[in-house]
Simulated assay, not measured.
Amino acid sequence: MSLNSMDSDVFLSMSSSDDSFHSTSFLPLDKTLDSCFSDCLKNLNVIHINAQSIPAHYPDMLASFDSRNIHAILVSESWLKTCLPSTSYSLPGFRLIRNDRVGKGGGGVAIYLRSYIPFTVISMSSQPPLPDAAEHLLVEVLISHYPKILLGVFYCPPYVSDYFRSFESLLEKEVPLYSHSIIFGDFNTCLLKNDYRSKKFLTTVESCNLSVLPLAATHYSPGCTPSLLDLIMVS
């Protein structure tokens, strides 16, 4: 996803359904990302991954995310722990900002942000996680040509059935303070379904003056119905 620095009211999105993705999908991920963002050199370029363990996939991340066109990598399910130093999982040119899950395995969120981009941590979910809240990390970033931007990543474990109240409260508190908000995450709420969770999620987001960018299914598994759990919201 790119935020256009030439026109602060324009957002561009890239999903797996875009022609630009399919035309390069046979390439390694680093080449695919270079191709996708090659025309966005003056933009703020942000990507999201559901890592399911940065330590387990660190060599792949080193090989995949070396593009100079990427400014922030938002990570759900980082699986980092306080005993694991950030220096062991650094990416060249990036600063690693973490909110590790404490008290149980898995979880956690993180942001790799270009080291030259000033930032302030605005909000972190408590650790150990509360039983009715999604894990999150919100930072304020400063980019030339822009007012300050709210950048955030979330992870909602599947066993958290109702995180909407705390989610809405957080958005209502922070989003109005920024001209631009960019929020990614795995919310374990499938927007391809017309059920209570999807309706509640959309209502919550819209009440906070955010929009969910249209995406195709983000997960396919043999014999299973495709799902759309990884979402992008922007002001």
Rank of each mutant, 00 (worst) to 15 (best):
E140V: 04
Y146H: 11
P147I: 04
P147L: 06
P147E: 10
K148N: 12
K148C: 07
L150K: 01
L150R: 00
L151Y: 04
L151I: 09
L151H: 10
G152F: 00
F154T: 02
F154A: 00
Y155A: 00
Y155N: 00
P158Q: 01
Y159N: 09
Y159R: 11
Y159H: 11
S161C: 02
S161P: 00
S161T: 03
S161F: 04
D162H: 14
D162R: 13
Y163R: 04
R165F: 09
S166C: 06
F167A: 05
E168H: 11
E168A: 08
E168N: 10
E168T: 08
S169Y: 07
L171C: 11
L171G: 09
E172K: 07
E172R: 05
K173E: 03
K173G: 00
K173N: 04
P176I: 03
L177S: 14
S179W: 04
H180P: 04
H180M: 09
H180S: 12
S181R: 03
S181F: 02
S181G: 02
I183C: 09
D186F: 13
F187M: 14
N188I: 07
C190W: 02
K193S: 15
N194H: 06
Y196C: 15
Y196A: 15
K199C: 14
L202C: 15
T203G: 15
E206S: 15
E206D: 13
C208I: 05
S211Q: 13
L213V: 09
P214A: 07
S221P: 03
C224P: 00
L228C: 12
L229D: 03
